[in-house]
């Protein structure tokens, strides 16, 4: 039950993009087509779940016992960077189709602050190993949902008559604001 609450909390109530403001760059940059949005979301979710396991082990079995929590940021970012590299090599060998579809978005996951941010939040919340994994899965799915919603709306937006100064990013931010307003309806659910 508690795991379910963590999951729902990460997907809806504290949606990583629309409520916690993590991962805004890919949210604005990769949300022009639903297909790429889905690919990006899936790749990020995968990296998040793997990172959740690795950073949890590092934090509680290496950094804490040796009194090195101040090295948290550099260590975590290196783990994420090498993880992304590993995923990239793995996909390249095993499923070249998916690898080509994701293209440039794969290496960019390293600088997605949702991944590092979520590892830091999981450590702050002192989650257990299983809880961290579920939290990572929820965070990734929440990111994917936000990205898909935004991409769907932006695809329709091409046919709309937007005032000139607002065209492009301006209107995208206002749409994100309205989406965020809708997601604030989930507040108090957990």
């Amino acid at each position: 039950m508690e795991l379910f609450l963590i999951f729902i909390g990460a997907v809806f109530v504290n949606n990583f993009v629309l409520v916690r403001f993590l991962g805004i760059c890919p949210f604005m940059g990769v949300s022009k087509q639903t297909e790429t949005a889905l690919g990006m979301g899936a790749a990020t979710t995968f990296v998040m779940v793997v990172t959740a396991a690795l950073t949890w082990l590092l934090q509680w079995y290496v950094l804490e016992p040796f009194g090195l929590p101040f090295l948290q940021t550099p260590v975590f970012i290196l783990v994420i960077a090498s993880m992304v590299q590993l995923v990239e090599m793995f996909l390249h060998k095993t499923s070249p189709g998916l690898y080509r579809a994701l293209g440039i978005y794969l290496p960019l996951i390293t600088t997605n602050c949702a991944v590092l941010g979520f590892s830091l939040i999981a450590v702050q919340g002192a989650y257990s190993f299983i809880q961290s994994l579920i939290f990572g899965l929820g965070a990734g799915i929440g990111f994917t949902i936000a990205l898909m919603l935004m991409a769907g709306i932006r695809e329709e937006l091409r046919f709309a008559d937007v005032p000139k100064p607002l065209a492009g990013t301006g209107i995208a931010f206002i749409i994100a604001g309205l989406l965020s307003l809708a997601f604030s309806g989930f507040a108090g659910l957990v």
């Binding site: 629309l18 000139k164 209107i171 931010f173 994100a176 965020s180 604030s184």
Partner: peptide, 24 residues
């Protein structure tokens, strides 16, 4: 609402529009 997350997105959107207008 401007202190809450939705307000952040809307404020930034409008300021970017304003900045575009000034530059033009």
């Amino acid at each position: 609402v401007f202190s809450l997350p939705p307000g952040a997105f809307i404020t930034v959107g409008l300021l970017i529009a304003g900045m575009n207008m000034i530059s033009t």
